[in-house]
Amino acid sequence: MRLLRQTTALAAGLLMSVSAMAATDYNSYQEEKPGYLAMMGDLIIARPMLLAVTAVGAAAFVVSLPFSAAGGNIGEAGHELVVRPGAETFVRCLGCTRAGYGRKQQDENL
């Protein structure tokens, strides 16, 4: 029971830090103008699925941690299993197709 609580706490900590880590990896600028249907589909279908993939990836990362440490690729495993799905979940404008802050700020045009 104690191991389950520790693993859950570790996974929750990883999930909370995903958006900060992903923002540093995926900060390239891409302008997109998604429509209503793209935004609704993203909100209702894609984001919940990506959140589930991020949670499963975080759990897989925790399980694979001893093997990744033995192989010397903890960073690559964390990036592929947690950061990339997290970036697609949290660091993407609603309805956009690629990660990154793709919407222009209104103040830039003034």
Results as ranks from 00 to 15, higher is better:
residue 1 M to P: 02
residue 2 R to A: 13
residue 3 L to A: 14
residue 4 L to S: 14
residue 5 R to D: 13
residue 5 R to F: 13
residue 6 Q to F: 05
residue 6 Q to I: 02
residue 7 T to M: 10
residue 9 A to F: 03
residue 10 L to N: 11
residue 10 L to V: 09
residue 11 A to W: 03
residue 11 A to I: 07
residue 13 G to M: 08
residue 15 L to E: 10
residue 17 S to C: 09
residue 18 V to G: 07
residue 18 V to C: 13
residue 21 M to C: 13
residue 21 M to H: 10
residue 23 A to I: 09
residue 23 A to E: 14
residue 24 T to P: 03
residue 25 D to Q: 14
residue 26 Y to P: 05
residue 26 Y to K: 01
residue 27 N to R: 07
residue 27 N to Q: 12
residue 29 Y to H: 09
residue 29 Y to A: 15
residue 30 Q to T: 15
residue 30 Q to K: 14
residue 31 E to W: 13
residue 34 P to W: 05
residue 35 G to A: 02
residue 36 Y to F: 15
residue 37 L to Q: 07
residue 37 L to T: 12
residue 39 M to V: 05
residue 39 M to D: 07
residue 41 G to N: 11
residue 41 G to Y: 04
residue 44 I to M: 14
residue 45 I to V: 15
residue 45 I to M: 07
residue 46 A to N: 14
residue 47 R to Y: 09
residue 49 M to E: 11
residue 51 L to V: 08
residue 52 A to G: 11
residue 52 A to N: 15
residue 54 T to H: 05
residue 55 A to P: 02
residue 57 G to D: 08
residue 57 G to K: 01
residue 59 A to Q: 11
residue 59 A to D: 12
residue 62 V to M: 12
residue 63 V to I: 12
residue 64 S to P: 01
residue 64 S to G: 15
residue 67 F to K: 11
residue 68 S to R: 08
residue 68 S to V: 00
residue 69 A to K: 10
residue 70 A to N: 05
residue 70 A to V: 09
residue 74 I to N: 09
residue 75 G to F: 09
residue 76 E to K: 11
residue 77 A to D: 15
residue 77 A to L: 07
residue 78 G to A: 06
residue 78 G to R: 02
residue 78 G to N: 02
residue 78 G to M: 01
residue 79 H to G: 06
residue 79 H to D: 15
residue 85 P to F: 01
residue 86 G to F: 00
residue 89 T to M: 11
residue 90 F to S: 00
residue 90 F to Q: 06
residue 91 V to M: 11
residue 91 V to W: 01
residue 92 R to W: 07
residue 92 R to H: 04
residue 93 C to Q: 04
residue 94 L to Y: 01
residue 94 L to M: 12
residue 98 R to W: 13
residue 99 A to G: 05
residue 99 A to I: 08
residue 100 G to H: 00
residue 100 G to V: 08
residue 104 K to N: 07
residue 107 D to W: 11
residue 107 D to R: 15
residue 108 E to I: 14
residue 108 E to A: 14
residue 108 E to S: 13
residue 109 N to C: 06
